[in-house]
């Protein structure tokens, strides 16, 4: 694709002067060279010294962003060290997300850290093979990771060990089509539109209603034959505007 544009294009001057002397559009050699680029962030060196076998490799992306690949089995230990060591003090977990590169390649879980006092950023990545999508939760270190990890679980199917409340967060809890952000998941979903509409309407808005389900991993599955025309039910929580109350 890249070369197509260069050779087939008409404008004569294609020499892109990238910022900071970095070749902006050359993906292939960048990867090979990356190991030789010295890290910008001193935390990377400290991390390598502290965990010589936990840190697999590191590279510099997009000019000045440090990325550290670590052993997925030791994620909680390494991130806790980064959070609690006074010299590092990565107290702000900006983001937890995942990347599926498709083609059966492992899913990357990405932690984006920021240290408010040190003003430094670090990106930590772990690779998880598709048949063992399990990693330790970091909610014990940053409570802000709670919903972020739930979202990764919902959209990628990565299980976080030790998470206090690992349920789907965006999709319905009885969603049967899979994990949408995987590359093998089709854009329009797996079921036909009619099937999706029917399934959506057989859900009852009052389901998933009790805080008691917290801590349970098993979602309540709606009985498919639920009688939604029931008048008693129909005066339920759908509108919510009238402050529906239900005594436990």
């Amino acid at each position: 694709m890249t070369s197509d544009l260069g050779s087939g294009g008409s404008a004569p001057d294609f020499g892109l002067v990238a910022a900071g002397g970095r070749k902006g559009h050359d993906p292939a050699p960048d990867t090979a060279e990356a190991g030789n680029v010295p890290p910008v962030n001193p935390s990377v060196t400290a991390l390598r010294r502290q965990f010589p076998d936990g840190v697999l490799r590191n590279r510099v992306c997009a000019g000045d962003q440090d990325v550290v690949h670590i052993d997925s089995g030791r994620v909680a230990e390494i991130l806790r060290w980064l959070h609690e060591t006074p010299d590092q003090h990565y107290d702000h977990l900006a983001d937890v997300t995942a990347v599926d590169h498709g083609g059966g390649r492992p899913i990357e879980v990405v932690y984006q850290l920021w240290s408010i006092p040190q003003r430094s950023a670090l990106r930590v990545k772990c690779e998880l093979p598709l048949d063992a999508l399990e990693i330790e939760s970091v909610t014990g270190i940053w409570q802000g990771a709670n919903w972020l990890e739930r979202e990764v679980y919902d959209l990628f199917g990565v299980h976080f060990r030790g998470h206090p409340d690992l349920r789907r967060i965006l999709m319905p809890e009885n969603y049967a089509e899979g994990h949408p952000l995987r590359k093998d998941f089709p854009l329009r979903g797996r079921f036909s539109r009619a099937e999706q509409t029917r399934r959506a309407l057989t859900q009852d808005p009052e389901d998933y209603y009790m805080p008691g389900e917290i801590g349970e991993r098993t979602p309540q599955v709606v009985a498919s034959g639920a009688d939604d025309g029931d008048e008693a039910k129909a005066s339920g929580a759908g509108a919510g505007g009238e402050g529906e109350a239900d005594v436990l």
């Binding site: 694709m1 890249t2 197509d4 544009l5 087939g8 294009g9 008409s10 404008a11 902006g24 559009h25 050359d26 993906p27 292939a28 960048d30 990867t31 992306c61 997009a62 962003q65 990325v67 900006a94 983001d95 990347v99 990405v110 984006q112 950023a121 990106r123």
Partner: peptide, 24 residues
């Protein structure tokens, strides 16, 4: 201008390639 038109067409249909990296 024919050249510009082809250029425009290619940019619109093919898009701009980005390097195989990630960026936050």
């Amino acid at each position: 201008d024919m050249e510009s038109m082809i250029h425009h067409f290619k940019l619109i249909t093919e898009g701009i390639p980005a390097p195989a990296e990630d960026c936050w």
